[in-house]
Design a binder for these strands. Structure first.
Length: 389
DNA sequence: ATGTGC
């Protein structure tokens, strides 16, 4: 690549980030630790890299002979679904839309027969987590209505059925408690040592992982259906991409396992990289070309968002003097925030995240993406419940 | 992240 956005940390450790992109030292430390795991061939941090529970978030890990469920984390199948709604941008009233959206936190299967039937129509295997289907969850998960403000490549834009006159819907959620249970049960039995590929337990994890990926995708689809029903509209899915998952691939002639944790695949078509609730999102196309070096150095992966800059626990102390909760319910881009949970509205403040420009520029400088369109938030929905608000 | 932990 030979550019300033590729940082070589060690022989098999690299980070894709421009010099001006903030990367916390602790995250690099975690990246180097994972690089030393048995069988690990290469690890790469994306520009949204930040520290996680033991292992970093915003990274991809390639191992041979064994794989590590803990590197995927508990939210197996977490991802982004982008849809084009039938709502017209013209004459939009955000306050009316917020009212019509209402509360979408309760289990869908507890709503009525219509929704029970909609959930059943997905024919998911029984998991015990059926009440979570159609619900967004907490943390960084959200559903957001967006407006396309700029188009950089009209041809790709139109070819994917995008239209700047229509409101977009972005859903970020995953497998809820289901993936968490799969990881917890795995760790209880096998610890953090990973699994040899020919171990029977590897097959078992693999099957459960596939089930969680499907659960997560169906969950995003149900969330979108539910939002559309409340807004009396219909939406056409443009893309749905996981960023927490395991896959079997060949890289530099070695067949092995690619772990993605907060890393969007660069080989599954058009993707969306969202900024914080107070920042833009970008629809981009990966540019892997046919040179193996670019693809293998990035492990066929891209950033999955802006990446946290502040730990959750330091957000409220740092911001409560500066903003009231009412102020946090609007953003600098004049979007509305639905988050009736005081802790969460601080934890997810735009200030807690890196500027999305630095993430997009890093990927562009590295030659990894082609930017197609820019979207601004209209309404960011987190939760209507929670406490203390 | 979490039908969330003592």
């Amino acid at each position: 690549m030979g550019n300033s956005s590729l940082q070589i940390i060690a022989e098999n450790v690299s980070v894709i980030a421009s010099p001006k992109t903030w990367i916390e030292g602790g995250a690099i430390q975690q990246l180097q630790t994972t690089a030393k795991l048995p069988g690990m061939h290469r690890v790469v941090g994306m520009p949204d890299l930040h520290p996680g529970r033991g292992y970093p978030v915003g990274a991809a890990f390639f191992s041979v002979g064994r794989f590590y469920p803990a590197l995927i984390g508990g939210d197996i199948g977490c991802g982004m679904r982008l849809l084009k709604t039938d709502l017209s941008i013209a004459k939009l009233s955000l306050d009316k839309l917020v009212k019509r959206l209402g509360n979408i936190d309760a289990p869908l299967i507890e709503q009525n027969d219509f929704w029970r039937e909609r959930v059943r129509s997905y024919q998911l295997q029984e998991s015990g987590f059926e009440p979570s289907l159609g619900t967004i969850g907490g943390g960084n998960h959200f559903a957001e209505l967006q407006q396309i403000t700029e188009v950089f490549d009209q041809q790709i834009f139109s070819a994917h059925g995008l239209d700047r006159k229509q409101v977009m819907l972005l859903v970020h959620s995953g497998s809820r408690g289901f993936g968490g249970q799969i990881l917890r049960q795995h760790i209880e039995q096998y610890g953090h040592h990973g699994l040899a590929e020919d171990d029977a337990a590897a097959t078992s994890y693999w099957q459960q992982h596939q089930q969680a990926l499907h659960f997560a995708l169906c969950n995003r689809s149900l969330i979108a259906e539910r939002i559309c029903a409340n807004l009396a509209t219909h939406a056409e899915p443009i893309l749905d991409i996981h960023h927490n998952f395991l896959s079997e691939v060949s890289i530099d002639g070695a067949r092995g396992f690619l772990h993605r944790k907060g890393a969007t695949p660069a080989d599954e078509g058009l993707i969306v990289i969202p900024g914080s609730r107070g920042d833009y999102s970008f629809v981009v196309q990966a540019r892997l070309g046919n040179q193996g070096e670019l693809a293998s150095h990035s492990l066929f992966s891209l950033a999955h968002g802006a990446g946290r800059k502040w730990m959750r626990s330091e957000c409220e102390p740092r911001l409560k003097q500066r903003y009231t909760v009412a102020q946090l319910s609007r953003t600098a881009l004049d979007s509305r925030v639905v988050c009736h949970d005081k802790g969460l509205i601080f934890e997810e403040a735009p200030e807690a995240y890196k500027p999305i420009d630095s993430v997009i520029e890093s990927l562009q400088d590295a030659g990894l993406i082609h930017v197609v369109a820019k979207l601004k938030p209209l309404i960011s929905y987190k939760t209507s419940g929670g406490c203390c608000l």
